[in-house]
Design a protein around this nucleic acid. Structure first.
Lengths: 122, 122, 122, 122
DNA sequence: GTGGTCTAGACCACC
DNA sequence: GTGGTCTAGACCACA
């Protein structure tokens, strides 16, 4: 059940990114319990230390709370989650527009491209 | 005159990215001459070896051509440039939409966000 | 009625610390009776085993005495209490001054800081 | 040359604390270079991974900057250092006064104790 | 059972 | 040479 990781970036960082997305999207509901480090590590096909590192980072960001012997839980602070989702989206949009502009795309061309994609999946 | 680099990613890769963007946007016109490795390195504030590596990669991708005695030139193959720009844009758009979807944004919300950004700068 | 505990330190140790402070300050008077382990645990919002461990340590230090049938009592040895309070204060002051010195505060600066605090609350 | 560590607290946390104190006191001057991870680890008598963890934390706090292949450097942001020193001192003083109050010391008694100490060393 | 820490050692990219 | 990452495995305290 090992997940796919891009070897050009640290595995722990990719795990952080994916788990963060799950929290922001609600797939991991606020207050919900996480599986144990060992289980999560096995599910992802990585060493428990690697998974622990990812979880530690999520904790420093406030998305995850650790209870010494009971396990880890998603934060119940929905305001934090919402704020982070908005900030993340904002950054992504700004970066995306910036990069597209750098390779010579105008906003009009962009809109066309995006519509082509979203309609294709609709 | 040293540029800003993100220390979490290889410098040479960041240079490749920036130069590639300049070619794709036309800021570096097809067939145009590039400055010497030494000058480019000094301008970017990096080790010449690092700049050399970046240029080598651009050459591998066909965007830059080396002429033994005359120096380096941007490719004149505008078809290649256009194809690469389209492919790059395609990948960026797909990745962007995928990531936004992962954190729970619907296409409609996305459109609104993007419009807010492009209008704000227009 | 669960108290607040710092999850980075053992809960039982934090309970010991707080109860010890109450004995040293006289909030728990010498010879006074303690509530049952179960009640204390419930009041603190911890597992009875955890409270038991805290009380055992207090007993080891001589601050608490257990009478088989009647329950637990604060020691009546006021000399012990006074000595412990003095020793604790001594250690705290020494540690505090040492730490402040390590981050570059002179005794004079210290005095000013402390006065600012005590006056502010006075 | 192994340093002394308190086995009741994580070694990496104690290293963080000591290095932070050295930065705040100026023993590690702003902009100064740090020894390599391996050397620092050897000097402290710990595993390089442990030292790296401590340095990583100092970096997240902004006190240390890492340059990919050149090594680590103390931040040159003296404003940050000063602010952190003031904040640290503030916290220490508040905690200290709070704890002393909890074990029954009045501000007056405190002042006497501190003066006894500082005079003793003067 | 849980999370946390530490060691040892290997491998890698970068410059 | 530098820092960074990952694995493997052990040990511990806590509840």
């Amino acid at each position: 059940m090992a997940e796919n990781f891009d070897s050009s970036r640290p595995i722990y960082a990719q795990i952080v990114e994916r788990m963060k997305a799950k929290v922001l999207s609600g797939e991991y509901p606020p207050g919900g319990a996480l599986a144990s480090v060992r289980d999560l590590a096995q599910a992802a096909g990585v060493n428990p230390n690697t998974m622990q590192r990812a979880l530690a980072q999520l904790e420093t960001e406030g998305l995850v709370r650790t209870e010494r012997t009971a396990g880890r839980f998603i934060t119940e602070d929905t305001a934090l989650i919402d704020a982070l989702r908005a900030a993340t989206a904002e950054t992504m949009v700004a970066d995306f527009l910036e990069k597209m502009k750098e390779i010579g795309y105008t906003p009009a061309q962009l809109t066309a491209l995006i519509e082509a994609h979203t309609e294709g999946k609709a």
